[in-house]
Amino acid sequence: MIHVESLTKTFPMGDGEVYALNGTTFTIDQGEMVAIMGPSGSGKSTLMSIIGCLDVPSSGTYSLDGVAIENMDDTQLAEIRGRKIGFVFQQFNLLSRTSALENVMLPLTYAGARGAERHERALKVLERVGLSDRTHHTPSELSGGQQQRVAIARALVNEPAILLADEPTGALDSKTGVEIMDLFQRLHSENGQTVILVTHDPYIARHTDRIIQLSDGKILSDEVNHHKILAGTPRAEEVV
């Protein structure tokens, strides 16, 4: 469970400061599928990096599964990231010249898992994203959609509490993007995985159950999505 309260984040700019987040409060329960939306500059990336423990807030509190994060040091944050959070990025961020399997094993290396266990867990999670037959391919030998699946497998391999995806379909064509959304929805419905999507695309946001709209570092709206799109249904239907 994520609970943030009165979160602010300021960055120095010129002589003064600029607020990227300005008093944000919300709660995301375990097993939710939420989209955080907003135009660029709305603070959604900053919010994502704080939720993902890549950064700490300037003020306010953030508790993740009851643990206060806001005052943790670098090493503690790294440990939380490794254990509780799985990142999926727009640009995949796979290690080049490195096989899919080894890319997926990377978080386990830092978590201190043993060689054989790493191998086994990475294979299992690659199977879950449908890439059992691509384990020894390097990123350059995989399509964009396959690369993003490897990245999702990497995010899942430590069985994190939260799957945090930053514009996961942004670098993909729309058909592949839908396949990736389908995968997120399946992971969510089959395993009860908490999924947080950060996007500027309303169409992608509508694949989730709840949409939080940000603007100028503040929450504009926080509503249940009554028109959830199930990925795989033809796009024509949802245009109505």
Binding site: D74, R81, N93, P107
Partner: peptide
């Protein structure tokens, strides 16, 4: 730089 960022995101500590 991006590789380092990624390694940190998946749990690498400063010392690692």
């Amino acid at each position: 730089t991006r590789e380092i960022g990624l390694r940190k995101a998946v749990g690498a500590t400063r010392n690692q």
